[in-house]
Amino acid sequence: MELSRAVSMDYLREVSIEARRNVMKMITHAQAGHVGGALSCMDILVALYFEVMRVDPARPRWEDRDRFVLSKGHASVALYAVLAERGFFPKRDLMTFDQIGSRLQGHVDMTKTPGVDMSTGSLGHGLSAAAGMALGGKLASKDFRVHALLGDGELQEGQVWEAVMFAAGRRLDNLTAIIDYNKLQLYGAVAEMLPIEPLLMKWQAFGWHTMEVDGHDMAQIIGSLRRAAMEKDRPTVIVAHTVKGKGVSFMERKVEWHAKPPTHKECERALAELREA
């Protein structure tokens, strides 16, 4: 069983471009889905599933697997594209996204999609569930790690801080939270809606080990995830600075592309840009 593959950064970058292309196709086909936040977290997901996490696509419910919780459940398309790329289900299924009866729901559903470890969609829930998994791992003396990907706007939910406090209190060093810090939420800039800064200071004041990376630099992402795994007695948060809509020039840093499906023409333009990248 292969736990991790030695792969070049180039390969990972290719995977993430391919996954981004699939995101475009899915969303355009379904005329639904959250494109901006899916593109911003893509490199993180690829790093997790292709390099860092111990998973076996043939056994999505394998007990000793590392877990991943997509707390920003609206980025489902990104996770689906990566899971399909990794072989959890056939890539042709991607085009069923958001159709009635599909196993690819608008927000991720663990009962329907192989490889999805937790159902999410309403913001603020994921870190609690991830902390529960991490705690379960500790109780059962298992060595798996739990990763949770949170949106930045999501940090406005009080439940997140309940979980942050808890994970530190319980010394859950098998838990890594990653923040997709793309600076935009549904309605505008996070800093204008409800400022979450000073972000690192908040997590430090709540007892977490903190790191800050460029969320589109594959080497930095992987390095930080590895370092997180070595930290003892406290959970780690990686604040990943990202660009909403990353990879498609006309979507980058644009609030309106939070959940707007592209037209077929826009999709073609995006696919072309991604091919050239």
Binding site: M118, H125, S128, A131, G132, M133, G137, E162, A163, F166
Partner: peptide, 18 residues
Amino acid sequence: GIAEQNMVGLAAGLSTVG
């Protein structure tokens, strides 16, 4: 602690581990 929302989420996570 006094954090019921988190408690329910934790329980969900624990149940997924069996």
